[in-house]
Design a protein around this nucleic acid. Structure first.
Lengths: 204, 204
DNA sequence: TAGATTGTTAATCGATTAACAATC
DNA sequence: TAGATTGTTAATCGATTAACAATC
């Protein structure tokens, strides 16, 4: 559920550019990127225009240059540190998943209310929720992954915001109530599957 | 990335209704649902209208009735069987996650090209990809979760479609090329996080 | 130069919101 | 009845697409 379409498409373009580069290409045209990203060439150019990205008339875009520009735009050169709250099934899986690949994003700590989790061994340290505020302030964390049980979602969300978090990747099925300056991105896999089932069975 | 907004909102409304019901409520008004789902009351009524769902003027909607209607609409009373392709980190995690809760959806089998995976013990049987077509036909599977390495994504996607799959929940970062009658829903957690980081750091 | 591609403005399309009649 | 809420039609808004001048 992309919060901002041009932003999410720019990230998609970067994925495509990396793929093109790995295939040995040096430059691309808007229709190459459009094809690969599943959008029209006009959309690609429009998005670039939105972000002030320039190509060369007739010459397309140099892949290296373009990737660099996007990385600068997203500050992707310096690694980004985030945390996860809730070390159940999803919390654990996401931590592995995100910290496993060669991305700029790192989950550097987890928080849980369950004392059992604190004693367990994970690939990142797990702290009690009571230490959340202090940690977020000290490490200047801005983004958190929320993977707690439904019943605790809104309460933990409030605690995150109190602690200084401004962006939440919400894996609970609830729509969180947050102030305007906080951004929430919802990932609801259950609903995605049910939607697919519906569309496949009942629509064209 | 919801493929169809009214559909995904209807599913969100159902989540909200279940929450209301668990709190002891018997009926709701469009503004209750809107508040809980994070949309306007007009949006709620419009969506209901799209799906032919009727309330009672001045009387709102009975929760039990409404949940029943939505379940019928989505065929959610009979359990839905799907498969997962790729039993790496995400594949395993998703399988646990989806099969763990009290949902209507079940992942009934996994497929992998890695012979090591075939010998491992999971909560569902794991078969070689060579048996995909036969299995899909025999069990009349329509939906698959794609969780293979990037490099294998498009190829495995093609194989799924050949085998008779019409809906794909795509966890790879690639945009898959599929015919018009196949529906793909993309879940790109990496991009979601980067988008959050961008929006938090650079926008309002 | 001719042809191809960019970047941007204008037109179109679709989705959301506002308005309001129906009615309980 | 008066007030509140639904259901739908019309108006608005925003996003996508089309068109095209600039230019390499």
């Amino acid at each position: 559920m992309p919060v901002n379409k041009p932003v999410s498409r720019i990230l998609q373009y970067r994925n495509c550019l990396l793929k093109f580069r790995s295939l040995g290409f040096k430059k691309v045209f808007s229709y190459n990127l459009g094809e690969e990203a599943g959008v029209s060439p006009e959309q690609v150019r429009k998005d670039f225009s939105t972000f002030g990205i320039k190509g060369r008339k007739k010459g397309g875009y140099f892949i290296n240059e373009l990737v660099g520009t996007i990385n600068e735009l997203f500050n992707s050169n310096q690694s980004q540190q985030i945390i996860v709250v809730g070390m159940g099934n999803i919390g654990q899986a996401l931590t592995q998943y995100i910290n496993n690949d060669e991305s700029y994003v790192r989950i550097i700590a987890a928080f849980d209310i369950n004392p059992v989790k604190l004693r367990m061994k994970f690939i990142i340290p797990v702290y009690p929720v009571s230490e959340l505020g202090e940690f977020v302030k000290k490490e200047k964390i801005k983004i958190a992954v929320l993977a707690v049980p439904d019943i605790a979602a809104q309460e933990m969300c409030n605690k995150l915001i109190e602690s200084g978090i401004y962006g939440i990747l919400n894996f609970t099925p609830l729509i969180l109530k947050v102030p305007d300056n906080v951004i929430v991105s919802n990932v609801n896999i259950q609903n995605e599957i049910e939607e697919l089932i519906y569309l496949v069975n009942f629509k064209k």
